[in-house]
C-alpha cells in the first residue's frame, strides 16, 4: 500500500510535467492544426536556457525559469512567423518536414552550446520531505504546485480575458475571427509564444529531477502526441486529463508490470486509439 501511494506521487509529478508540455502542443494544434514535432525540442531548449541561467549567469532558480520562459516565447514567435506561417496553405506533410528541420537545428544548437552529455541541473530545493510515511523531495512538490498554478492561470487567461477569447475564436473559425476584426496572425504568434513558454516552464521544473540532454525532446514529443490524441486533438482540458492518465499508467505499469517497457505504454495507447478510432478520440464530426 505504501508503494502504491509513492507511485501515485510519482504519477502526479510526471503528470504535471506531461500536462504542461501537452497543453502547449494542444493549443497550437487546436488553433492552427499544426502538429509541431519540434515542440519537444522547445522543451529541451527551455531546459538548457534555464540551466544557463542557474549555472553560468547565476541568477537563481526562479529568475532562470522566467528567463527560459521569455526566451522560448520569443523563439516560439520567430518559429510561427518564419517557419509555420508561410506553410499554412502547403500540404500537411510540409509542415511536419519543416518542424523536423527546426528540431535538428535546436538539438545541434544545444549540443554545440553545452555538449552532448547528460547534465545535472542543480536545484536549491533538494531537501527530502517526509509526511505520512511518504518520501518526496521539495522539488517534486514544487513541480506539482507550480504546474497547477500555471494551468489555472492559463485557464483563467483563456476563459476570462478578452485576449484569451480571441484565441478561442481563431481556434473555432479562423476566417470568421478575421471578419470580426481579430488578427489571426497575431493570435497564432501569441499561441506559439504561450506554447513554447509552457514547455520552458515544464522543462525547468522537471530538469532538476531528471537529467537534461540535447536529445531529451524525442521521447517527450511522442508522449505529448499520445496525450493529445487521448485527450481529443487540440482540447486543452483533454490534454490535462490525458497527461495525468498517461502518467499514472506509466507509473503503475512501470512498477507492477515492467519498467523496461514503461515508455511503450504511451505509444501503445496511441496506437490502440487510432486503430479503433482513426479520426482520433472525441474528433469533431467530419
Amino acid at each position: 500500500m505504501h508503494l502504491f501511494f509513492q507511485e501515485l506521487l510519482n504519477g502526479l509529478v510526471v503528470g504535471s510535467l506531461y500536462a504542461l508540455v501537452a497543453l502547449g502542443l494542444a493549443l497550437v494544434y487546436g488553433t492552427m492544426q499544426i502538429p509541431n514535432f519540434a515542440h519537444g525540442h522547445l522543451y529541451m531548449l527551455g531546459a538548457y536556457v534555464a540551466f544557463f541561467g542557474v549555472t553560468v549567469a547565476h541568477v537563481g532558480y526562479w529568475p532562470a525559469m522566467l528567463l527560459a520562459i521569455v526566451v522560448l516565447a520569443l523563439v516560439g514567435v520567430v518559429l510561427e512567423r518564419l517557419v509555420f506561417r508561410p506553410l499554412r496553405n502547403a500540404p500537411e506533410v510540409n509542415t511536419i518536414i519543416a518542424a523536423v528541420g527546426v528540431l535538428f537545428f535546436l538539438q545541434t544548437l544545444a549540443q554545440v552550446w553545452f555538449g552532448g552529455d547528460y547534465r545535472v541541473f542543480p536545484t536549491p530545493y533538494d531537501k527530502v520531505v517526509h509526511f505520512a510515511g511518504l518520501v518526496a523531495t521539495q522539488q517534486q512538490l514544487i513541480v506539482i504546485a507550480a504546474a497547477a498554478v500555471l494551468m489555472v492561470a492559463l485557464f483563467w487567461f483563456l476563459k476570462r480575458t478578452l485576449t484569451g477569447a480571441t484565441i478561442e475564436a481563431v481556434a473555432q473559425n479562423r476566417a470568421g475571427a478575421a471578419l470580426v476584426g481579430i488578427d489571426p496572425n497575431r493570435v497564432s504568434m501569441m499561441v506559439f509564444a504561450i506554447s513554447a513558454g509552457l514547455a520552458a516552464a515544464a522543462a525547468t521544473l522537471i530538469a532538476s529531477i531528471s537529467l537534461i540532454s540535447p536529445s531529451m525532446g524525442f521521447t517527450v514529443i511522442l508522449k505529448a502526441f499520445a496525450i493529445i490524441v487521448l485527450g481529443g486533438m487540440g482540447s486543452v482540458p483533454g490534454a490535462i486529463i490525458g497527461a495525468y492518465i498517461l502518467a499514472f499508467a506509466e507509473s503503475f505499469g512501470g512498477t507492477y508490470i515492467s519498467s523496461n517497457y514503461q515508455d511503450a505504454i504511451a505509444f501503445g495507447v496511441l496506437v490502440l486509439i487510432l486503430t479503433f478510432k482513426p479520426t482520433g478520440l472525441f474528433a469533431k464530426g467530419t
Binding site: 502538429p35 511522442l222 496511441l270 487510432l274
Partner: peptide, 22 residues
C-alpha cells in the same frame, strides 16, 4: 495506419516505429 489521415498518419507511424525500436 492507412485508415488515418494526414497528421494522424504521421503520428501513428511515429508511435509504431518507436514501439518497435523499444
Amino acid at each position: 495506419s492507412l485508415r488515418t489521415r494526414g497528421n494522424y498518419f504521421a503520428i501513428f507511424t511515429a508511435a509504431v516505429g518507436v514501439m518497435i525500436a523499444i
